[in-house]
Measured scan of single mutants.
Amino acid sequence: EEERTFTNEEEARKAKKEAEKRGLRVTVTKDGTTWRVRIG
Protein backbone atom coordinates (compact mmCIF):
# COMPACT_ATOMS: atom_id res chain seq x y z
CA GLU A 1 0.00 0.00 0.00
CA GLU A 2 1.25 3.41 -0.95
CA GLU A 3 -0.02 6.91 -0.24
CA ARG A 4 0.68 9.88 -2.46
CA THR A 5 -0.33 13.46 -1.81
CA PHE A 6 -1.13 16.12 -4.36
CA THR A 7 -2.11 19.75 -4.17
CA ASN A 8 -3.50 19.57 -7.68
CA GLU A 9 -6.81 17.77 -8.25
CA GLU A 10 -5.96 16.98 -11.86
CA GLU A 11 -2.74 15.20 -10.88
CA ALA A 12 -4.56 13.24 -8.20
CA ARG A 13 -7.10 12.09 -10.77
CA LYS A 14 -4.31 11.08 -13.15
CA ALA A 15 -2.63 9.03 -10.44
CA LYS A 16 -5.96 7.36 -9.69
CA LYS A 17 -6.53 6.47 -13.34
CA GLU A 18 -3.04 5.02 -13.69
CA ALA A 19 -3.43 2.85 -10.61
CA GLU A 20 -6.83 1.62 -11.78
CA LYS A 21 -5.29 0.68 -15.12
CA ARG A 22 -2.86 -1.53 -13.21
CA GLY A 23 -5.83 -3.16 -11.47
CA LEU A 24 -5.15 -1.66 -8.06
CA ARG A 25 -7.66 -0.40 -5.54
CA VAL A 26 -7.55 3.35 -5.14
CA THR A 27 -9.03 5.68 -2.54
CA VAL A 28 -8.94 9.43 -3.01
CA THR A 29 -9.63 11.73 -0.08
CA LYS A 30 -9.47 15.48 0.14
CA ASP A 31 -7.85 16.94 3.22
CA GLY A 32 -8.19 20.70 3.14
CA THR A 33 -6.24 21.68 0.04
CA THR A 34 -4.43 18.34 -0.19
CA TRP A 35 -5.56 15.33 -2.17
CA ARG A 36 -4.48 11.97 -0.76
CA VAL A 37 -4.36 9.05 -3.14
CA ARG A 38 -4.08 5.69 -1.39
CA ILE A 39 -3.12 2.85 -3.66
CA GLY A 40 -3.38 -0.82 -2.77
Rank of each mutant, 00 (worst) to 15 (best):
W35M: 02
V37S: 00
T33D: 15
T5G: 03
T5I: 14
L24A: 04
R22W: 08
T7S: 10
T34D: 07
T33P: 13
I39G: 02
A19I: 07
E3D: 08
R25V: 11
E2T: 13
E10H: 10
V28M: 14
K30E: 06
R22K: 09
V37M: 06
R4A: 08
V37H: 01
K21W: 06
E9K: 07
F6T: 02
E2H: 11
E2G: 07
T29W: 14
K17D: 14
E3T: 10
T34R: 08
E10N: 09
F6A: 01
T34G: 08
G23T: 00
V28I: 15
K17G: 08
G32M: 02
A19P: 01
E2R: 10
T27D: 05
W35D: 01
G40L: 15
R25T: 11
R36T: 13
E2S: 11
D31S: 08
R38F: 13
R36M: 08
R4Q: 11
E9P: 06
V26A: 12
R25Y: 11
G40V: 15
G23H: 04
R38P: 01
K14F: 09
G23C: 08
A15P: 00
K17Q: 14
R4V: 10
E1Y: 15
E2P: 07
R22C: 09
R25I: 12
K14S: 09
R25D: 06
E2F: 14
R36Q: 06
A12I: 02
E18I: 06
R38S: 12
W35V: 03
R13I: 15
K16A: 15
R4D: 04
E9H: 06
E10R: 11
T29R: 07
K30Q: 12
E18Q: 08
F6K: 00
T33C: 10
V26P: 01
K16F: 13
A12V: 08
K16P: 00
L24D: 03
K30I: 09
E1R: 09
A12P: 00
R25N: 09
G32E: 05
A15S: 04
T29M: 09
G40T: 14
W35H: 02
R22T: 05
E18A: 08
T33S: 12
R4K: 11
T7C: 13
N8W: 03
A19G: 04
E2M: 12
